[in-house]
Design a protein around this nucleic acid. Structure first.
Lengths: 136, 136
DNA sequence: CTAGTTGCAAAGAGTTTGCATGGCG
DNA sequence: CGCCATGCAAACTCTTTGCAACTAG
């Protein structure tokens, strides 16, 4: 668990906050920051710490062995599910009411208690749908 | 893409069909079958082929670097979303009507086109909820 | 027959870890 | 000043790949 706010820690946090809606792979983050004063292992270690503190969520993309991280702006994310675009990689908050409704419906119909923080729905976002129609 | 039905292929298929509701990691499958006449690489290659044919879905578990596979009983899975229990590992089909409803709602409210085959909702299944209440 | 498949072992990608050094408070 | 965090490189885990031998149809 994090005790000291090191330069690396701050740098990483800044980086994450600057990319709020993209799930970033640890490797990608490390690569993006490799010119700065932070090593890959510091990136990995800090991401794990941040995850343990709930500041970051760890998620996987189907078919990839990479682990992705996404900064969570505290309470904001407690009641939403994430929608992640498989084309552009960005992720969005599902309408909170809809998420609540979904959780309720699944609890009732399937007797299954959804964990929002573990779950992400994949698909195509509005912009990429539009782009797709143009392309053909 | 698969052309010949080899002994290994049949073995793997049998194995998968025997475990319909558990997402199995490729490594686990390979380990379970290592005594039989099938190598790890045959397992991996066949799983990829089966995925390409839509007989198997590939999925990730948040926090794990392993890739999981789950046998899909054809058309059955076209219209459902999967609910995967983070406690016992089993996965279930979300009520088809509920899934359809969800897809519609998200399309309308979030302008996001969910891809059922990519998406899995994680949480706790009925049995594990009950077990949890007993345990404390 | 003969192209698709297999097994093996080696290569690859991504992540974790051990240890000496450095820096936060 | 003491302990936590860092950087480096080596270890690890899981998966993919190259290639010669094998086999389904």
């Amino acid at each position: 668990m994090q005790k000291y706010m090191t330069r690396q820690r701050r740098l990483l946090l800044d980086y994450l906050r600057a990319h709020p809606d993209v799930p970033l792979s640890a490797g990608q983050i490390a690569a993006d920051m490799q010119d700065g004063p932070i090593s890959a292992s510091a990136v990995y270690r800090n991401l794990s710490d941040l995850e343990a503190e709930g500041k970051v969520r760890r998620l996987s993309r189907s078919g990839s062995r990479e682990v992705f991280f996404q900064y969570m702006d505290a309470a904001d994310c407690r009641n939403c599910l994430h929608l992640s675009c498989t084309r552009c990689g960005r992720s969005f908050h599902m309408h909170a009411l809809g998420a609540a409704q979904l959780v309720r419906d699944v609890a009732r119909n399937d007797q299954f208690q959804i964990d929002r923080s573990e779950s992400v729905l994949y698909g195509i976002c509005r912009e990429c749908q539009a782009a797709g129609r143009e392309d053909g």
